[in-house]
Design a protein around this nucleic acid. Structure first.
Length: 410
RNA sequence: GGGCAGAUACCAGAGCGGUCAAAUGGGGCAGACUGUAAAUCUGCUGGCGUGAGCCUACGAAGGUUCGAAUCCUUCUCUGCCCA
């Protein structure tokens, strides 16, 4: 479903031309670093659409808000009439970007990568204008290279350059292995820029080194060098580590509206300001009560990736459920009474509900110690603290499993 | 290829023959308080069992022993030094 918020992308030459100076100002906003603004301005003055490269490694099938920061920037270039080039690193994904990594990535099979790439691009088009985006796969050139080609490419980069990288160095210092193939990654990413003839490459701040290698290789090939545009890394929901699926601290672009809203409500105040800036491109209004500001953030983002109605609905439901603590009127997962286990005790019932409604597998010990004994499990507001007590249910009953999990029986 | 060191639960890291399902810290989960924020406090953090207890676990496989995370052998992996 295309995001309805998007205005149509301007064609080149744009009917309402934006001056290079004005473009520069808009483009630099929100970025962490641009190398260099002067160079970018020069390119903007070329009076042709620039080729803007954004490389993504389809190592996971879903994109999350961390990825959208760079995609938003690419979209902005599109809106100014430039050519977005979305590079799918189907080849490099099988290696794994060592950037910011404290350990070698587990390798992915080609099938996994291709499957990921498909869902990945679909989600990326929630942000980018599909018609105006050139999608390329780096396997198209890397799979054709011979070992000789690889060696020639490698001859252009020194080990010293590679070892300057902080992530490699820290791994070396901390006695963590660095595999030789990981050294290839920046070279390959750099070569992508040559193939694409990129004018600008967008990436996270951890991509500085890789993107600079691209500049070096372009120079060697006699091409104009790409401008480096770095976007800040988005912290995950914990506010500390970068947003990543492997840390389970992400908000997925495809998350259901309610879940997306809820995840955003759990962020800290500091993080909220950051999300405002990086995800909405807005500045947090300090006069707002933090809770109001957060609801507003959550609503806007939910509306963006679903639609206005869903954003409003998620917010309304939030208010009834958590602000008014009115579970009865809330939109809860519904479980049919007919599918309950035969002997419904508090224990078996809560296990069943976690599994059926939230796909969570909880051991009996965990249920007893974490959920039942402390009074987390409640039927229509009454605490059920005896795991073996039988439970009789009727339609409309609401079982609360924890602060965040509740179901309604039908 | 040779020498040395190491491999402990989600992570870091104690333990070095029984009192070890394994100290401590972090993380995580649940509860109280709140704004599903922060801070703070409490409990939990291998599985089954109401419980006694049982089972599975300290890189892998064997062995010594009444008894092994702890000792021995081989293997695998990692790091460091030498070549």
């Amino acid at each position: 479903m295309p995001a309805p918020r998007l205005p149509p992308v301007l064609r080149w030459p744009t009917p309402r031309r934006v001056t290079p100076e004005a473009q520069l100002e808009a483009l630099v906003a929100g970025s962490a670093k641009v190398l260099s603004e002067k160079e970018l301005l020069g390119k903007l003055r070329l009076d042709r659409p620039l080729r803007i490269k954004l490389g993504v490694d389809p190592t996971a099938p879903d994109i999350h808000f961390g990825h959208t920061v760079a995609l938003e920037k690419l979209r902005q270039f599109q809106e100014l009439g430039h050519q977005a080039v979305l590079l799918i690193g189907d080849f490099t994904a099988t290696i794994g970007d060592p950037s910011g990594r404290s350990a070698t990535r587990p390798p992915l099979t080609r099938d996994e990568v291709l499957a990921n790439a498909k869902t990945y691009t679909e989600q990326a088009f929630k942000i980018l204008d599909r018609e105006q985006t050139e999608v390329v796969y780096n396997g198209d050139w890397f799979r054709k290279m011979s070992y000789e080609d690889v060696l020639r490419l490698n001859a252009r980069v020194t080990l010293q350059q590679m070892l300057q990288r902080e992530d490699f160095r820290t791994r070396i210092d901390s006695a963590t292995e660095v595999r030789l193939h990981e050294l290839q990654y920046p070279v390959m990413q750099g070569w992508d820029s040559v193939e694409i003839k990129a004018d600008v490459e967008i990436g996270g701040t951890d991509q500085l080194f890789n993107i600079l290698v691209g500049r070096d290789l372009q120079k060697e090939e006699g091409q104009p060098q790409q401008v480096v545009m770095l976007m800040p890394l988005l912290e995950g929901l914990d506010g500390v580590k970068k947003m990543s699926k492997s840390y389970d601290n992400y908000v997925g672009v495809n998350d259901p509206a309610q879940e997306m809203f809820g995840k955003l409500m759990s962020v800290s105040d500091d993080l909220m300001a950051r999300y405002y800036q990086l995800l909405l491109g807005e500045t947090l209004d300090p006069s707002l009560h933090p809770m109001e500001a957060k609801k507003s953030l959550a609503q806007k983002l939910t509306a963006r990736y679903h639609d206005e109605a869903a954003g409003q609905a998620a917010r309304d439901d939030w208010d009834t459920r958590f602000s008014k603590k009115d579970l009865a009127s809330s939109d809860l997962p519904e479980l049919p009474l007919t599918e309950l286990p035969a002997d419904t005790t508090v224990l078996s019932l809560s296990a069943h509900c976690f599994q059926a409604a939230f796909q969570l597998k909880k051991s009996n010990g965990e249920l007893k110690k974490q959920f039942i004994q402390p009074g987390s499990v409640q039927l229509n507001g009454t605490k059920l603290t005896d795991p073996n007590a039988p439970v009789s249910l009727s339609a409309g009953d609401i079982l609360k499993l924890s602060k965040k999990h509740a179901v309604r029986f039908i």
